[in-house]
């Protein structure tokens, strides 16, 4: 039985998947906005700004608010 191959496959950790899920959620919102208002898709600056807000600023603000409430 050769099970060694599995140990060589580079598999994302649970934490990697969690981060990926967050980005997927941000992407889903971006795509919906983009399909409805197509101008939103045209600028790389808008795309980057959106991502910084959706994937960094919003989660950070929520984390901070949670900490304060605790």
């Amino acid at each position: 039985m050769r099970l060694r191959l599995l140990s060589r496959i580079d598999v994302p950790t649970r934490s990697d998947w969690r981060v990926f899920a967050g980005y997927c959620a941000a992407a889903a919102v971006y795509i919906v906005i983009g399909v409805v208002y197509d101008d939103f898709l045209l600028s790389v600056v808008v795309g980057m700004a959106y991502l910084v807000v959706a994937a960094w600023l919003v989660p950070r603000t929520i984390r901070r608010m949670r900490r304060r409430l605790q």
Binding site: Y23, A27, V44, G47, L51, V52, A55, W56
Partner: peptide, 9 residues
């Protein structure tokens, strides 16, 4: 996040 932005975009 900025580093990942072009991939995301």
């Amino acid at each position: 996040t900025l580093y990942r932005a072009a991939f995301f975009y």
